[in-house]
Write a protein that binds this DNA or RNA. Structure first.
Lengths: 244, 244
DNA sequence: GTGGTTCAATGGTCCAACCAATTTCTGCAC
DNA sequence: GTGCAGAAATTGGTTGGACCATTGAACCAC
């Protein structure tokens, strides 16, 4: 029994149709992130559907992070859209406790190592220079403010993800990054959190600059390992039950 | 200028409140996947909000794959929900073409390698036995049906993800797996697709059984490399523009 | 300019009704 | 009683219209 390419006819697929039309419109008008798209009322009128239907469709896009709605102002694009996008929503149960954080960190280790390796292969002179610049900023902030360089640290890593040539790395890790923020507001009792990971930033950069993928991968693994150790130390110091 | 911890006050967060209440209800009633949750009309009445608001909230959950709505029947849970879930919707622009598939494959390589390494560290006797069992099934199917062992192959890998002790691996890769299916329906001109990766399944298993994380990681990397090679060969054979 | 006020535009919520798909009930034929 | 077709109730999907809350721009007094 071969599979017929017969998509089930759908008498009703209003919101989907709305999104398709809207995606087409966005492409046609060459709208990019930050730009405002038509009013809900106008969309409803133009597409000959109820404003409610338009809203459900936009709610979908909002949930996917494609769009941002500001009451009184309008609906704005947050990312580039194309008609052939693939959505893969992930929901992680219980990411608030220590175990959950540890698990996300394992994912990050996997991606960080691979991104560094790919970066070592693909990064051109411009990308390497950009990474070095971010590294310099981070190191300066680190020495200047005695270890408080979370923001600069993050930008350094982002530069690597970008230079990996695969935007998925940045997307996935950025999504998890919010989770870290939620957790790192509890200082965890470890004052010099992240101190141990500091030197590895430079070694990663050096391996990337030398176009040594395996070396970059190894250094990235070491970096995450130090973070995990810090985390474990912190967890040991602190009553875990207090974290709720 | 220090950062004040002043999240913007929100006088209105109706749909969010609805979802929180609903998540609480699901937990309280211990509802699991497949079970039906209350009617939209009932929810609207109980929560003292408009049915429209309930619908927007449910649309969010539907978009996240947490829930499935069947007209005339009801709304059913598709996954376990808890009040502290982390949502991380990923949209992959242009995932239908060769580049998009290659990118997801790079993510998979990262996760596959790390999962194998963790598995080598953590898997107990039972888990290793299970993996060996799946390996046997796969090898038999491979020899019997001349390479058509996609399903068994997938189950083998899933067993590894499960034994890694981190459910995130399985979740993320499972989400991407659907992408692959959509693509592999185009046979790509490569008849013996996946043949080259076959021997590495056993070597991965052996490194895991030997509790050798670095060895397992290396073998997993080799396996994905063969798949990438197959893919590149296929792409070279085929007019890429035909894939649309 | 500065600081308020007004006002139109826009997303957010609500309501009441109807449509469409599904399920359940009912009643008839056997 | 059984089985099945049709009616009725249930439920998500859609519509249109109304009003509220927020925003931002225009306007005005000072």
């Amino acid at each position: 029994m071969t599979e017929f390419s017969l998509p089930p006819i759908q008498t009703t697929a209003r919101d989907d149709a709305v999104l398709k039309a809207l995606a087409g419109f966005v492409m046609q008008e060459a709208l990019g992130p930050g730009q405002r798209l038509p009013t809900e009322r106008i969309l409803a009128e133009r597409l000959k559907v109820s404003r409610n239907t338009v809203r459900e469709a936009l709610t979908r896009w909002e949930g996917l992070g494609l769009v941002e709605r500001r009451q009184g102002s309008g609906t704005y694009l947050k990312a580039a859209v194309s008609p052939d996008m693939l959505h893969m929503p992930l929901t992680l149960a219980g990411g608030n406790d220590f175990t959950g954080l540890m698990r996300t960190l394992e994912i990050r280790r996997a991606l960080e190592a691979e991104a560094a390796a790919l970066c070592a292969i693909r990064a051109g002179k411009a990308e390497i220079a950009e990474i070095e610049r971010k590294l310099g900023i981070m190191e300066e902030a680190f020495h200047c403010r005695a270890g408080m360089s979370a923001e600069e640290d993050w930008e350094f890593h982002q530069a690597i993800y970008r230079a990996s040539g695969n935007p998925l790395f940045e997307q996935i890790i950025a999504a998890m990054h919010e989770l870290f923020h939620r957790f790192w507001e509890h200082p965890l009792g470890v004052r010099d959190f992240g101190h141990a990971s500091f030197p590895y930033h430079r070694t990663i950069y050096e391996r990337i600059a030398a176009h040594d993928p395996n070396g970059a991968r190894a250094e990235a693994l070491k970096l995450i390992a130090t973070v995990e150790d810090d985390l474990k130390r912190g967890a040991a110091n602190l009553k875990l039950s207090d974290l709720k």
